[in-house]
Design a protein around this nucleic acid. Structure first.
Lengths: 239, 239
DNA sequence: AAGTGGTCTAGACCACCGC
DNA sequence: CGGTGGTCTAGACCACTTC
């Protein structure tokens, strides 16, 4: 782990423990340079990480202020494809279980082939999972993954966390994801599995997840019961 | 403008012009160091910007690849509170007009007071605007802003772009925004102004926008007709 | 083994905020 | 005005991919 990440972790911990209280200033960067025996560029990089997380805010000439983020900390956990839904939910004390509706190998439609950047004739997994949060049917996930990239996928893996398997067993790392969020009417599938009325809205999160070599590994549509899941995130400017 | 931003702009332009075609490698960093007469740290910072925009992908040992992002370029423009909706839409050739439904000064509810981090007795603007995209009623915006931070707000400003006014007339700069997205049923207000049926879903984007000193300047709920607007963005890992 | 990007340094200059 | 963070450099070492 790079030095700037370690430093960021230490400072983050101090903020959460209250050693650096909200609405006070962090020690200035030259002091941090001394404490951590690092160059100022490295300290700056650590602070940039915390800035991106919404924990602090730096202003030229005025220091780096610890922000009070308690108000949005209470609400929904931010969705994060790199950790998997189960860990996100565990953070806020909720439990997740899964029910496999469909698990098969098929050939992709032209649309899915394009999104996964596949050559002809490459098979994909088609997976439909019902995600049950605290005992309530909440999300219906339609997922497509190239078979060639994900060997050895089994029911057991699907019942737990796919992403844990990708990371820990296949040692894959991710570059990022492209997402589109929209509202939709509940279709018959949603009504059947999410226990919702024909007039209930659904929040659909469509995403393509990329490996660190640029190859898409997943195309999915997650249909969320409107009263069970929202999508929460921070959009920080610049660096 | 910092040097690394200028370099990023030049490289971005070359990518868009096809001088660095998709799926080829960028010149390596030491070559770029020579061309732009900069240090490697500066070149790296420029490339990081492009990485965050999803234009390129760097891998240790393998170079920096130009990505083919044409497939999501065609879809909805990513929402960006810093430019304002009018410019986002102009990018993809759509027109925006606004109709003011409500414009008044009032005292905030406890919830809004908390989100805007206001002391007691501070008045806020309450603004409701209907946003009309290509002639179709598409978004109903409920916006609250502290009066003290936004002097001189008028009907004329509201009819155009609030954010242009904040930036160019009041010279305010922004730190970022916190957002929550969810689906909801159309309420009577939505039905009246968005011309939608009682059974139509609505996509609600709730946001708090912060100034660069950490003070919230806007709390808003944007209710989007489900068939008119989605929310699209890139989530890139790390630096 | 050669070439690539990732990290890190020690020091410098500057823009900005607040007293 | 002093103190702060933002930028930039020249060079170094290392981890990784590719051949």
């Amino acid at each position: 782990m790079p030095k700037y990440e370690e430093i960021a972790n230490i400072i983050r911990q101090r903020i959460k423990q209250g050693r650096y209280p909200a609405n006070t200033l962090l020690p200035n960067q030259t002091d941090l340079v001394q404490e951590f025996d690092a160059s100022r560029m490295t300290i700056k990089k650590a602070i940039t990480i915390l800035t991106m997380e919404g924990l602090v805010l730096s202003r030229r000439g005025a220091g780096t202020k610890v922000l009070d983020h308690s108000f949005w900390n209470k609400s929904t956990a931010p969705a994060d494809q790199y950790r998997g839904m189960s860990r996100d939910l565990a953070d806020i004390g909720k439990t997740l279980s899964s029910k496999i509706i469909t698990f098969e190998v098929t050939f992709p439609t032209p649309e899915i082939k394009e999104r996964l950047m596949l050559a002809d004739q490459q098979p994909v997994y088609k997976i439909i999972r019902l995600r049950i949060i605290d005992g309530v049917n909440s999300v219906l996930e339609h997922t497509y993954m190239p078979v060639s990239l994900v060997p050895g996928l089994t029911d057991d893996v699907l019942a737990q966390s796919i992403y844990t398997y990708l990371k820990e067993n296949l040692h894959l790392t991710f570059a990022g994801a492209f997402r589109n969020i929209q509202a939709d009417k509940a279709d018959e599938y949603d009504q059947q599995y999410l226990d919702c009325a024909p007039t209930d809205p659904v929040l659909e999160v469509e995403q393509v997840v990329y490996l660190d070599n640029g190859q898409p590994i997943e195309y999915s549509r997650s249909r969320n019961r409107y009263d069970r899941r929202g999508y929460t995130f921070l959009d920080v400017k610049n660096t």
